[in-house]
């Protein structure tokens, strides 16, 4: 296989990696990507680094938290909730 063709396939795989990781591709497209990955260690290595990036985002817990909710702000929300309940039409 000419190296040029190989590079084109790598680029195609590169453009579809997120959809591949998210299982959003058709079975046929998935198989095609996997067939390429088996013979292309650089693409496997890159795909793995992208998978880890997504995994880090999933595991990420924010460091920045809001200040504790003030009593007045809490009352405002509770009041809105009570009003919403009170505004319901009685079930007949």
């Amino acid at each position: 296989m000419a190296s040029h063709e190989h590079n084109e396939k790598c680029k195609e795989v590169f453009s579809l990696l997120s959809e591949y990781l998210d299982l959003e591709l058709t079975a046929e497209a998935c198989q095609e990507i996997e067939a390429h990955l088996v013979g292309c260690p650089p693409c496997i290595e890159f795909a793995e680094s992208l998978r880890k990036t997504v995994d880090l985002c999933h595991r990420y817990q924010p460091t920045e938290l809001p200040d504790p909710l003030g009593q007045q702000a809490r009352e405002q929300l509770l009041d809105a909730y009570r009003k919403m309940l009170a505004g319901r039409k009685p079930v007949s």
């Binding site: 650089p42 290595e45 890159f46 680094s49 880890k52 880090l56 460091t63």
Partner: peptide
């Protein structure tokens, strides 16, 4: 042989806790 110019991602911690420095980089 073609080799990817990429960091060694195998060293990335796989535990549940993200270290704060890495977390900062991600943020």
């Amino acid at each position: 042989h073609g080799k990817l110019q990429i960091a060694d991602w195998s060293s990335l911690p796989d535990d549940r806790m993200l270290r704060s420095e890495l977390k900062g980089v991600l943020e």
